[in-house]
C-alpha cells in the first residue's frame, strides 16, 4: 500500500471524527473573536473590528460604570434565582422520583411545558400577568427574579430527577439495614450520591439566568441586566470591556468543569 493510499484509508476511517472536530472548531470561532477583541484598542466606537493590541480593557473593566452595575445585578439575580430554583426543584425531583401519588402526570407535564415554550411566549405572558395584576409600573429586579426562578425550575427538576432515577434503590435499603436511621441514610448515602446532580443543576440555573435576554427584556422595566446592556450598546457601539466579561465567563466555566474533572481523576488515582 502506498503512503498516499494509506493516508486515504486513514482519512476514510476518521472522517466522522474529523467532521466532529470541525464542528467543534466552528463552535469556538466566535469565542476566539471574543478573546481577541478583549485586547482590542478600537479606533472608532462605531466600527467593530480589531485595530491594535492593548491591555487597557482588562486593567480598567469598569470604564463604563453602567456595564459593571448591570453585571453585578445579573450576578445577584443569577445567584438568588439559582438558590431558590435549586431548592424548590430538588424537592420536586425527590417528590417525583421517590413518592407515588395521584397527579404525577400533571406534575410532570407542568415541569415539561416551560421547556417546550418559546421564551417570547413565556416572557409576554408573564408581562401580561404583571400588568393585569397592577405591577406594570414596578417591573424590575423582583419581576426579573421571579421569571428566572420560573424557567430555571424545570431544568433543575429534570437534572436532579435524572440523577435520582439512576440511583440504586438498594443503596438506601442497605444503609437502613446497616443501622442508619432515615435521617442518617439521607445525609450519608442519598445526599452525597445526588449531590453532583444538584451541583450541575445549580450551575445550569446560574448560566441560564445570567444569559437570559428575551424573557428578562420584557419584564425588566427600567432595570438593566448584563445581556440587556449588551443589547443596548450593540446599537450605539460596543465597549471592548464586554469582551473581557465574555472571556472571563468562558474561563470561569472552563475552570469549573476542568476542576471537577481533575478532582474526580485525582480521587480515582489516589485510590488506585
Amino acid at each position: 500500500m502506498s503512503p498516499l493510499q494509506r493516508m486515504g484509508r486513514w482519512v476514510g476511517q476518521h472522517l466522522v471524527l474529523m467532521g466532529g472536530l470541525l464542528v467543534i472548531v466552528y463552535m469556538f470561532v466566535p469565542i476566539f473573536v471574543v478573546v481577541l477583541m478583549s485586547f482590542n484598542k478600537p479606533k472608532s466606537k462605531l466600527i467593530y473590528r480589531f485595530d491594535s493590541f492593548t491591555l487597557q480593557n482588562w486593567l480598567h473593566p469598569c470604564t463604563d460604570q453602567s456595564m459593571c452595575s448591570a453585571l453585578s445585578r445579573s450576578i445577584q439575580i443569577g445567584l438568588l434565582a439559582t438558590v431558590v430554583a435549586t431548592v424548590l426543584g430538588t424537592l420536586m425531583a425527590f417528590a417525583l422520583v421517590r413518592h407515588r401519588f395521584e397527579g404525577r402526570a400533571v406534575a410532570n407535564l407542568l415541569v415539561f411545558l416551560p421547556m417546550a415554550s418559546p421564551e417570547i411566549v413565556m416572557g409576554s405572558s408573564l408581562l401580561a400577568l404583571f400588568v393585569a395584576a397592577g405591577f406594570g409600573g414596578q417591573l424590575g429586579f423582583w419581576t426579573i427574579l421571579i421569571a428566572h426562578i420560573m424557567f430555571c425550575l424545570s431544568f433543575v427538576v429534570v437534572t436532579v430527577r435524572a440523577r435520582l432515577a439512576g440511583l440504586d434503590n438498594n443503596l438506601e435499603q442497605a444503609a437502613m439495614d446497616l443501622y442508619a436511621t432515615e435521617a442518617q441514610t439521607f445525609r450519608r448515602v442519598t445526599l452525597p450520591l445526588v449531590f453532583p446532580g444538584i451541583l450541575g443543576a445549580a450551575l445550569l440555573s446560574f448560566s441560564l439566568s445570567f444569559d437570559d435576554f428575551i424573557i428578562t427584556n420584557l419584564n425588566a422595566g427600567n432595570t438593566t441586566t448584563f445581556p440587556m446592556y449588551v443589547w443596548g450598546v450593540a446599537q450605539r457601539g460596543v465597549p471592548m470591556q464586554v469582551n473581557v466579561v465574555g472571556t472571563v465567563m468562558f474561563l470561569v466555566s472552563i475552570a469549573i468543569v476542568v476542576g471537577a474533572e481533575l478532582n474526580r481523576r485525582r480521587q480515582e488515582k489516589a485510590l488506585a
Binding site: 449588551v230 472571556t247 465567563m249
Partner: peptide, 8 residues
Amino acid sequence: PFFTSFLV
C-alpha cells in the same frame, strides 16, 4: 462556548 454570553 455556550457559557459565554449569548449576545456577546
